[in-house]
Nucleic acid binder design. Structure first.
Lengths: 182, 182
DNA sequence: ACCTGAACACCGTTCAAGT
DNA sequence: ACCTGAACACCGTTCAAGT
């Protein structure tokens, strides 16, 4: 039949993410994505490499949806906003979010988020030699928390909100500790 | 040929876990597990329900491998031991460990670990009204950390050890905070 | 009760071919 | 350059049958 459908990588990832949201990650396949786009499975291979790359693309997409806070905000608010943005994405794409933990990414998108956290911590007065460790520990917690929500480990959303707010307060205490000397 | 091979659920889960460790989670299937046991795939269905139940069984198995610390130990040491036990299991079964986050379990095995954490926190003097929240936050961090290690997000093991030890110290500070009043 | 053979409806992927 | 048809080597699962 027709050639030249004008298929693009972005279009394919959109379809894959939509399927993941609707039917779960196990519903995402070369065949199902192709069908949603009205195309044969083989057409996808030119645009995304194979199924593994397609899933990597999904990670990239999810990371890009994490909204970075405006640089003008006070650092503590920036941290809160980052956490909140992470949780928002986790709840919007609960299935695809799991991929973040399964496939550790070092893409530009991932680095951008990391830098935002490091900068906020530095602006809060965390001494430079403890900065990267603080970022790792904080990001690990936030990632674990968001993943837990995505997987339904925290079924009560109101309580999850309160838990997260409390965790942010605890982090302030620790930052204060780091700031005034180990 | 022969009937009555004496197949058991435990034997099947052992084989599945071994395959996960060797070939990754994607290598675990009804057919591969059956082959490793010298049996046809159909023979498994009587003992584990289907593939989903097989994976649930794997979670159960992984949780059971988390060694609970002796009750005689001081509570702070118990907490450290629990964290260390979790990380040990995560590194022993990096692939299967990911299932812990993907399939939230409320099995007896999961509750046993949870209770050990709660008891240790209570013994440390965390007031009762903050106990379950403290457990949730602490477990979330520990789970996220262990999962990160399992997925290769922390490639430097020595640094991961130092990070984790540091995190435990921070937790002590927070516990002290909770103990002496909000 | 426990296991098998054959069969069904699926996968991801390759490769030659069409436009 | 971009897409398709046919084909290959896989999946999980059911169901009737064997012992």
């Amino acid at each position: 039949m027709a050639a030249r459908r004008g298929l693009s990588r972005d279009e394919i990832l959109d379809a894959a993410l939509a399927i993941a949201d609707a039917d779960g990650l196990s519903g995402v396949g070369m065949r199902s994505v192709a069908q949603q786009l009205g195309v044969t499975p083989m057409a996808l291979y030119r645009h995304v490499g194979d199924k593994g790359s397609l899933l990597d693309g999904l990670v990239e997409r999810v990371l890009r949806e994490i909204e970075l806070p405006p640089a003008g905000l006070p650092p503590a608010d920036r941290l809160r906003a980052l956490g909140s943005a992470l949780r928002t994405v986790a709840r919007r794409h609960p299935q695809a979010f799991g991929l973040l933990l399964a496939r550790s990414a070092v893409t530009p998108e991932a680095l951008q988020v990391r830098d935002a956290v490091v900068t906020a911590l530095a602006d809060l007065g965390v001494p430079e030699e403890g900065l990267s460790r603080a970022e790792r520990l904080l990001s690990t917690f936030a990632l674990g928390f968001a993943a837990s929500e995505a997987n339904g480990r925290f079924p009560d959303q109101t309580r999850a909100d309160a838990d997260f707010a409390h965790a942010m307060d605890l982090i302030s205490i620790l930052v204060e500790h780091a700031r005034t000397g180990a």
